[in-house]
Design a protein around this nucleic acid. Structure first.
Length: 558
RNA sequence: AGGGGUAUAGCCAAAUUGGCAAGGCAGCUGGUUUUGGUCCAGUGUACUGCAGGUUCGAGUCCUUCUACCCCUGCCA
């Protein structure tokens, strides 16, 4: 609901924005962009950036461009641009009719490069990659000038043309900005603007064999699009002088780069490289494995766009490195799912209960509300009969204090059905409880009596005669330690992978779940939120455990 | 003396020009409840990284120090 004004948290970026608007900088325009490189799948960290950039545009009446920063054909692919578009759309953001591509500006970039060469502030360097590295110096020592640094503009122009024309092999030469080889900021030591890559680009084909580097291209992309505030992550702080430098020298519209801290989450890993390893080495089933922090993974797991957007709003934006507790994400998820998920009954670890005083062949239909949080969702009918299953956990032969489920001689409510009392416990040869004999109170139909009886415990159940099989995939964190990127010496990140991050359980579900489509959210009463997986077939639903319900009883037991 | 950043409760994070240190998550207590869910109410000694200084008054200004993060791709 957009009409009840949400109170949005303040952050340092909005403070800058408000000031800029007040001072009528850029005529008071606010224009941001989300600039993913199409070389991998988006994850929740990107979601933070998406929400930030699109959110700002929305809040300040501006625009946000979706721009693919596709300047490196070696790593990029259309597969990724498709998935990125899908994910942004799914999160609920719209970028208008135009999607932007850095590759659309390749001609302009080249013109700008020619201009800088003509000005004498860029040159073609013929050092080998190894030599360039050597000449760059290091953190302690300044670099030294390339012997090719003083080539004349005419000479450079000619060489640049040849680079463009494909007269050089990969790595034979590069175009560099002539800045300062002794700068304490290594990015300023004559950064490379263009490199040669005789590779097809997924959008420009074989038109180009030279491709611009991030530092040269990015500010220009922003400038060309009229972006006012170019929001990126902290590691680009050192690049800002360069960002400014190119724009100043070219005398073009000058957006402002602002850096914020990327998102880290406990028990997860965010680096694209490591995520790729998880996929390639089979630790997970793919980019959309429900345990992955990718948008695709979260979606399949059952996360909702609203939950992720709300999370992004809730955690705020700052420049301090931080690790957000996973519980905060889960809170947002439960908050949303509680409002929308239909309640159903599913037994994951069945214990048979025979209701001895219930007629042998009778089946009756009982009314169950679909969602107590939303009356409009209505009711459904569920079958009840003499034999049912309840959760093993809901019975204890020798219960501790404050256990108010079923135990010998005690009464418990079956949700939406009847009160039952446990009369007899049947065990197998190993002494394990395999069946309960109970009696029900016909007066308690619907799960209530008006005689003032206090029946505290309520359990979910399914009818033995009518229930269906369901596969449930129970998930846990992918890593066993809160900060898997900060591990002990000598360990690789895969050493901390949780071997029990997925357990497949076959469960018994109420018959209404017999034919459902994928991607539906449910609350399995008293267990948690579950979402039907794409592996679901007619008659055999497959569910992903999205997140458990808060369980204060489990906490008490500890 | 490389450079660039950041330090506010277990976690995240606000704080107009210096003016009693928000809020959320987690935790804990109660209440409501046909989900031990939801909901409601309550709940914190934060020496604002340390040490000094300026000031009637400092998280905000000044100085010293410490810890952590980022930078030596023809990646972004």
């Amino acid at each position: 609901m957009e009409n009840n004004e949400e109170i949005k948290a303040s952050n340092f970026i909005k403070t800058i924005l408000r000031k800029d608007i007040e001072e009528a900088k850029n005529d008071g325009r606010v224009h941001t962009r989300f600039p993913p490189e199409p070389n991998g799948y988006l994850h929740i960290g990107h979601a933070k950036s998406i929400c930030l950039n699109f959110g700002i545009a929305e809040e300040f009446g501006g625009k946000c461009n979706l721009r693919f920063d596709d300047t490196n054909p070696l790593k990029e692919d259309t597969e990724y641009v498709d998935s990125i578009k899908e994910d942004v759309k799914w999160l609920g953001f719209e970028w208008g009719e135009t999607e932007f591509y850095a590759s659309d500006y390749f001609d302009k970039f080249y013109e700008f490069a020619v201009k800088l060469v003509t000005k004498g502030v860029a040159y073609v360097d013929s050092l080998t990659p190894e030599e360039i590295k050597e000449y760059r110096g290091n953190l302690k020592e300044p670099g030294k000038n390339s012997p090719y640094r003083d080539r004349t503009p005419d000479e450079n122009l000619e060489l640049l043309q040849k680079m463009k024309d494909g007269q050089f092999a990969d790595g034979e030469c590069v175009l560099r900005a002539k800045i300062d080889m002794s700068s304490p900021n290594i990015n300023m030591r004559d950064p490379i603007m263009y490199r040669i890559a005789n590779t097809e680009h997924h959008r420009t084909g074989d038109k180009w064999c030279i491709y611009p580097m991030y530092d040269f291209a990015h500010g220009l992309e922003d400038s060309i699009e009229g972006v006012t505030h170019s929001i990126c992550t902290l590691e680009f702080e050192d690049h800002r002088p360069l960002y400014d430098c190119f724009l100043d020298q070219l005398e073009v519209f000058h957006p402002q780069q602002i850096e914020f801290a990327r998102l880290n989450l406990t028990y997860t890993m965010m680096s694209k490289r490591n995520l790729l390893t998880l996929v390639n080495e089979g630790y997970v089933s793919g980019w959309d494995d429900p345990r992955m922090p990718t948008i695709a993974g979260l979606r399949r797991r059952g996360y909702t766009p609203a939950s992720i957007r709300n999370f992004a709003e809730m955690i705020g934006v700052s420049k301090a490195n931080s690790i957000v507790e996973y519980a905060q994400l889960e809170y947002c998820l439960r908050e949303d799912l509680n409002k929308v998920a239909q309640r159903v009954m599913v037994v994951t670890d069945p214990l048979k209960v025979v209701i001895t005083n219930y007629p042998e062949d009778e089946t009756e239909m009982l009314t169950a509300e679909n969602n107590p949080e939303c009356e409009a969702d209505g009711n459904r009918e569920i079958p009840f009969c003499r034999e049912i299953y309840i959760e093993k956990d809901d019975f204890m032969e020798d219960p501790p204090n404050k256990y108010f489920r079923l135990s010998p001689g005690k009464e418990m409510r079956l949700k939406h059905a009847y009160y039952i009392t446990c009369d007899e416990v049947i065990k197998d040869d190993n002494g394990e409880v395999i069946e309960l004999r109970c009696s029900y109170d016909p007066k308690s139909r619907g799960g209530w009596t008006d005689d003032g009886r206090r029946v505290k415990g309520t359990a979910h159940w399914v009818s033995a005669k009518h229930c269906i099989d369901a596969e449930i995939r129970m998930y846990d964190h992918l890593f066993t330690i809160p900060n898997p990127s900060r591990r002990k010496k000598g360990e690789v990140f895969t050493d901390n992978i949780n071997p029990d991050s997925m357990k497949v359980v076959s469960a018994l579900a109420e018959p209404s779940l017999a034919s459902i489509e994928a991607g539906k959210h449910f609350q399995f009463l008293r267990i948690g939120y579950f979402t039907s997986d794409k592996d679901t077939t007619d008659g055999k639903p497959v569910f992903n455990k999205t997140v458990g319900l808060k369980d204060t009883w489990a906490k008490m037991k500890k």
